[in-house]
Simulated scan of single mutants.
Amino acid sequence: MCTNILLKSKNGDAVISARTMDFGGDFITKLHKIPRSEKYYDILFNNETEFTKFKKEFEITEWENAYGYLSTHAYFKVEKWEFEIPTCMDGMNEKGLSGATLWMPCADYPKPNITKKNILSIHLVAYILATCATVNDVVDKLEGVNVINFSTSLNKFIPQHFVFSDSKGKSLIVEFKGGKMITHQPTNGVLTNYPFYDKQLINLKKYDDLTFENKEYTYCENDSSKCSQDTNGSGMSGKIEHNGLPGDATPKSRFVRASKFSEVNFEATNSQDAVTHIQQLIQTLQVPVGTIVPNKNNCGNKNENKNKWDMKNGYDHTKWCVIREHNSFGKINYYYYTNDNPTLQKISLDKIDWEKDSNPIDFEANNKTWYAETNFSS
């Protein structure tokens, strides 16, 4: 699952993006501050033994960070090891470049290549944020990179595709098909999941007639039988009823909704305008808990496995969202909120000392104060 979207204000004062993290499994999410001049793997692994096991499994390239960045990491357990592998799901660096990982079931990665830098797909976002400042930099950097998947010996396959956006509002989508890397440069940073991006664009053409402008109607004050006042929002209903804006949670439908919403007349006079605007849009793309239930015939043993699923951790739903101000009135900010805590948490990248390391922020640690209480005084 997952949805990403980007907006640029008409006056050019704000470039802002947002994404959902939709998933059905239970995993830990932590926010790391990754400083400059550090080696990524030195930061993410707890000890040399863990890293030695990891590096032995993969012929991977190490790198030193040219830029500091915030990294939203998920941690996945690998059965053959006693520790969890960190996976960079989202992040933004000090230059306003963001990177996002989204699920892509049909991703087919290249094989390891000793003539290029082999980067694990789960660490591509981290590598790009550490070494690039703009989307143009990303394009150049990817020419010398070979993105590979987990070794089959780990019995793990995390199919992904990626979207990167910079402070100028440029975006780059990176996908892997037939063992080759394919890139696209959209104007709106919209990405969901299956199918591949080019197929999403073909499907999107079906909705070209949708508009924000209401359809013309006739208002009949004295004769309700002649009234055709199907007004507010009717521009998105399409020429024919079944061709309106789709509202289900499938990747195709979310792609259409996000793409159409990205066409909104976006104006912002301050940071709050920008953040609240895109927050409203991303909330329409979230997947509420309980609205997706696996088909009983796809649960293996119908009687046993279905009972092991619990509503909150087993079924796909939005676990958290992030909002990124790449360049909003001269500021670079990163916001997030979780399914358990809708209170918006803000991190100002301009105020961070990128030369120093720090302890990670646990998303769940912010779930205590999830509302603001208002009292009436006598």
Rank of each mutant, 00 (worst) to 15 (best):
Ile34Thr: 07
Ser37Met: 11
Asp26Tyr: 14
His32Gly: 03
Leu31Asp: 06
His32Ile: 00
Arg19His: 08
Asp42Glu: 13
Gly12Ile: 09
Asn46Leu: 13
Lys10Asp: 10
Ser37Arg: 14
Leu44Asn: 02
Lys10Asn: 13
Ala18Met: 09
Asp42Gly: 12
Ala18Trp: 01
Ser17Ile: 08
Ile16Cys: 05
Tyr40Val: 01
Gly25Ala: 14
Asp22Met: 03
Phe45Leu: 01
Phe23Pro: 05
Val15Met: 07
Leu44Thr: 11
His32Gln: 07
Ser17Val: 02
Tyr40Asp: 01
Lys10Thr: 11
Lys30Gln: 15
Met21Arg: 08
Gly24Trp: 05
Ser37Gly: 12
Phe45Gly: 00
Val15Tyr: 04
Ser9Asp: 05
Ile34Arg: 00
Pro35Gly: 04
Leu44Cys: 11
Ala14Arg: 03
Leu44Ser: 06
Asn11Arg: 07
Lys30Pro: 07
Ala18Cys: 12
Lys10Phe: 10
Val15Arg: 02
His32Phe: 15
Ile16Leu: 04
Ser9Phe: 06
Thr29His: 10
Pro35Ala: 01
Met21Cys: 11
Gly12His: 08
Phe23Thr: 05
Asp13Ser: 15
Val15Lys: 02
Arg19Ile: 09
Phe27Asp: 12
Gly24Ser: 09
Lys30Thr: 11
Phe23Ser: 04
Pro35Val: 01
Gly24His: 09
Ile28Ala: 13
Lys30Val: 01
Ala18Phe: 06
Phe45Thr: 01
Asp26Leu: 14
Ile43His: 03
Asp42Ala: 10
Pro35Ile: 00
Val15Pro: 04
Asp13Met: 13
Val15Ala: 08
Asp22Ala: 06
Gly25Gln: 12
Phe45Ala: 00
Tyr41Lys: 12
Asn11Tyr: 06
Glu38Tyr: 10
Ala18Ser: 13
Asp26Gln: 14
Leu44Met: 15
Arg19Met: 09
Tyr40Ser: 05
Leu31Trp: 06
Phe23Cys: 10
Gly12Glu: 06
Ile16Glu: 04
Ile34Glu: 02
